[in-house]
Structure formats: C-alpha cells, structure tokens
Amino acid sequence: MTTTVAKLVDTSLCIGCKACELACQEWNDQEFTLGTFDGTYQTLPDLEHNFWNLIKFNEFERDGQMSWLMAKYQCMHCADPGCLRACPAPGAIIQRPNGIVDFVHDNCIGCGYCITGCPFDVPRLSPKTKKVYKCSLCSDRTSVGMAPACIKTCPTNCLTFGARDELLRKADSRAEQLRGNGDQDAGVYNPEGVGGTNVIYVLRDAKNPESYGLPKDPGIPWTLSLWKGPVKWLGSMVFLGGILGAFLHFVRYGPKDHGDEHE
C-alpha cells in the first residue's frame, strides 16, 4: 500500500520570509504577474492561477502592539475533495494513491465547477488557457521521492513533508508543547468535514482558525451533495421513465384518430 503523504505547517515557526512562495514559483515555472499593492506585507491579496502558495499576513493587535498571524495558504489536498466531486470531466481531477489531489490539464475543460466545489476557495481559472490551476503538492517531485519545493526551501522547519500518520503525531506533540509554553489554545487543524486534509496545520489559536484565514468548519456543500446524489437519480428516473412511459402508452393506446377519417 502506498503511504499517504502530507505537509505539516507549524505556524508558530513561520517567520514570513516567503521563500516557499518563491520556490513554488520557480519550480513550477510560473510567470509572475504584478498584483495589487494593498499596503500589507502580503505578496498578493489572494491566490492566482499562476500563484499557488501564499503566505497570509493576518494582522491583529496584542497588548496595543500590531502583530501577525502568518499562515501558508494553498490547496489542502482533502481526503474527500469537493473539487473532485464537482468535476464533470473524467480524469481532469485525480486523487493519487498517496493522497495528492492533482489537476490534469489535458482533461480539464475549464468549467470552473471545482472552484464552486472547493470549501477552501483554492482553484483559479486562467483567462489565457481557460483551465484551472492550483498547488499539486509538487507531485512531479514527490513521485520521485523528493520533497515539495516549498518544504525543501523552508529555513525554519515550519514546513515538513512525510508520511501523514507520522506528521499527525508530530503535530499533536508540537501542539502539546505549545500549550505547555503558555499557548493554551494551541492545536492541530485537520478538518473532519472534508475527511481530513493532507496539509495539516499547528495553530497557536486552534479555536479561531478564521484568524489565520482558514475556514472554521469546512465541508462538502450540501447543494453539491444533492446535485451529485439524489438529483442525478431523479434525472435518470425522469429521462428513462419518460421514454419507457411513452413507449408503454403507445403500445396500450396507440395514436389518436386522424381527423380525416371522420365523416
């Protein structure tokens, strides 16, 4: 059995150097386009089709001092990916045996349903290629035993890559350590609503993941589950039932009298 891999983000060790952003751009050969400067330290306001890894510099005040809650934002590689559920093109979104959720651009038709299905608002449509892009967890590197580019370059060990089970244990013990150091609300972010994620966070304030820019309780949207479940059955019933019903009606009753046969 293939080991499920994961990325651990220990936000308490992030210094906001953005080396991971640059490594991601370099390795994935992205053309950088200048975005809006909004007066913060953040590189861009949000993820882009050619910018898959963003350190969010969430500002907050503590004892009258401005401070940052820095969190790396990218595809979470969910165990139950909303993007994959929503995708109408077979083979355009795949879940690799090691847990990586990958977009296969040859099969992508650019409908953007994955953008709607994603509970983390990660995939981005390129206006040029009309296809959707996001972090691949460097599946081209991990498939040959190398760590993803962002992890390789991280100078503080804020980012680690490895077997998911091991990293979950590591995250738990790190959270415990942080609680011992006085961060009472420190904990692990591995949301259950999407079956857990292959990008795991250690947060100093795990009770408020929103303050890091992470959704509190992400899950598969109920309209998506209805659409891909009962609505599909209803459709099959109406289409096949309609054709069968028409056929049976014709066999039983046949056509109406032709008016010309009157009188």
């Binding site: 929503a86 953008i115 709607t116 449509l125 599909k232």
Partner: peptide
C-alpha cells in the same frame, strides 16, 4: 462565469440548473 459570480449563487445554481433541466427535458 464562475470567476465573477459569488460562491453562494454558484452553490444554488448547481442545484437549480440540473433540476430545471430535468423538468424541461422531461
């Protein structure tokens, strides 16, 4: 236009569009 429409509208649309289509095709 998924990149323009708000997500709440898109989440409703993925349900309304197939349901209306089922009625219409039926």
């Amino acid at each position: 236009f998924p990149e323009i429409a708000p997500r709440s509208a898109r989440l409703l649309a993925v349900l309304v569009h197939p349901l209306a289509a089922i009625g219409s095709i039926g």
